[in-house]
Design a protein around this nucleic acid. Sequence first.
DNA 1: TCTGGGGTCCTAGGACCC
DNA 2: TCTGGGGTCCTAGGACCC
Length: 430
Amino acid sequence: MRYSVTMRKGEHTYDTTSELFSLFGTWTGPAIGLMDLDAFFASVEMLDHPEWRGKPVIVGGPASKRGVVSTASYEARRFGVHSAMPSAQAERLCPQAIWTCGNFDRYREMSARVMAILADETPFVQQVSIDEAFFDISPGAYAKENPVAIAKRMQSRVAELGISCSIGLGVNKTIAKIASERDKPRGLTVVTPGTERTFLAPLPVGAMSGIGKAAEERLKRNRIFTLGQLAVADDMQLRTVFGANADMMRQRAMGTEKSSVTPIDAKEDIKSIGNERTFAKDLTDRADVDAALALLGENVGRRLRAKGLIGTTVTVKVKYSYGTGRTIQRQLPHPTDDEHVFVPAAKELLDQIWTEQTHVRLLGLTMSGFGVDGGIQTDLFCTVDERGAESSDQRNLAVTLDEVRKKFGRSSVSYGRAARFEDDIVRHPK
DNA sequence: TCTGGGGTCCTAGGACCC
DNA sequence: TCTGGGGTCCTAGGACCC
């Protein structure tokens, strides 16, 4: 197991653990880390398929279905393959790659095991995605050890699961996040308290989380290219780029942001649940589009019921061809988790924009508006909606089908009109 | 030779209320 | 025939993240 411990202090870089420990004996102030699992999906696949180890592995949608790369193993990255790349392009760059559509249940399971390790080390863990989490190990009430020692132990414990991670450690989230990307895979990059500004100043503005393509362009037009320049930029200039967030972005670029790591109860905090699909071939027949909508609705309904959420807002998203699309949304008279209620509403929304010439590349259906209390439904069998008792029966049917799917798999049952789209469901490879 | 799917948050304009 | 202003909700679009 290799640990690349990179620490930056002023002009110097120290690469040995012993030196690092002697220098970090007296960490004061906040110590915030970001753990990022290395090429996570691909690494889990290689763990589950030992014969794939050392080979280029790509997790993503097939080129024939207009897929993109989700994760590429480091072996595949050497060929220039990276996340979000169209699969067709990835195939050309690395024709010998092993492809898989992925197994998200398995990734979630491995993720949960990693998060349990973090939670065992500190109560202050904030998961930000399936493969990333912030943690607070500031010397104090809970963390008594040297933060670097804790981070190193986290890495060893994760390695025992058969996968690896990179960690960035510093005084706030911005520093931790950028540091975590500095040295991958299996990196531990520590930014000594007090050296934030030196660390950040030379970096391009796009390195900071929250600055994407659009903001980067606007900054460029203002002759702001680095975080150092952002830190000292004119107030009015920053305001034109970031609006109300100008002050916060400057603080981040200066390295003086104060961050708190707040454990989020993911269940209570869900804002929307949706499902969308890009079709291998554009849909032109309205009956096909309605069938696809029904299938999306089944998926959303099942997930709403699984989480005990009821929503009032239905959103339909359509993409016609590259670059153009629309979203339309509507409030329902009552919150619901029943696709028999919200799918017809979605169809009515679609009526508003449907023309005979419409070519649908992508279709999406999202439910939101769960309310201030989270929209948790307490009485499962007493849904009130505008269609009364009839749809209550239909909901009971939906609940029954949920059970069947849970036992026999998601595509085991489906309403007839949706069945013809089963082929478009990305399946786990054999 | 093409560009996924899961989300969150913000903005701006209009409706509506007081 | 004069037309404020604050607050909130809704809608559509877009930026951004992994």
